[in-house]
């Protein structure tokens, strides 16, 4: 007794049965509880994060410290300007997916002025906060742009 997790009604029925026929308790198969419902189905709805580039963890298994760090990172990424590709000739290709930008693509501008598709660069920035083209740490670059403005 004293197990707080035993709240299902089937347990109560078992308790009743136990008192009625305690001598057959271990041998009667119909007293076995049904297996717990399959849990896998809920998994895809839990977002997955990378606490280190090679570590993939569902949001439900993050430590408080990791949650704070990930929240900060998401906040920083969302502060980076985005735009709609306007046909500018300076940036023609997203070097992550190797496709040319098309009019209307959502792009993100890093402080070093390198431009990528938002969905291509955001996934990378969650793993490593550096520009893939010039390897400049994005947080350091953000600080300098704030200071010079």
């Amino acid at each position: 007794m004293g197990n707080c997790l035993q709240t299902s009604t089937s347990d109560d029925i078992n308790l009743l049965r136990d008192s009625e026929s305690s001598n057959t308790r271990d041998t009667s198969p119909e007293q076995l509880d049904p297996p717990p419902p399959y849990q896998e189905a809920v998994r895809p709805t839990v977002p997955v994060y990378h606490t280190a580039p090679n570590v993939t963890r569902p949001a439900t298994q993050l430590t408080e410290e990791e949650q704070v760090r990930i929240a900060q990172r998401i906040g920083l990424i969302q502060h980076l300007p985005t735009g709609i590709y306007d046909g500018s000739k300076k940036n023609r290709e997203c070097v992550i997916c190797m496709y040319e930008f098309q009019y209307g693509d959502t792009v993100r501008f890093l402080p070093c002025m390198h431009t990528y598709h938002t969905h291509c660069i955001d996934d990378w920035l969650m793993r490593s906060f550096t520009c893939p083209s010039c390897m400049e740490p994005v947080d350091a670059a953000l600080l300098t742009t704030y200071e010079t403005n």
């Binding site: 580039p53 793993r127 550096t130 893939p132």
Partner: peptide, 17 residues
């Protein structure tokens, strides 16, 4: 991978991009 440096001598710039 960046951050995957068990020996602590690789610069981030020398790792996977």
């Amino acid at each position: 991978e960046p951050g995957d440096d068990k020996y602590g001598y690789e610069k981030a710039s020398e790792r996977w991009l």
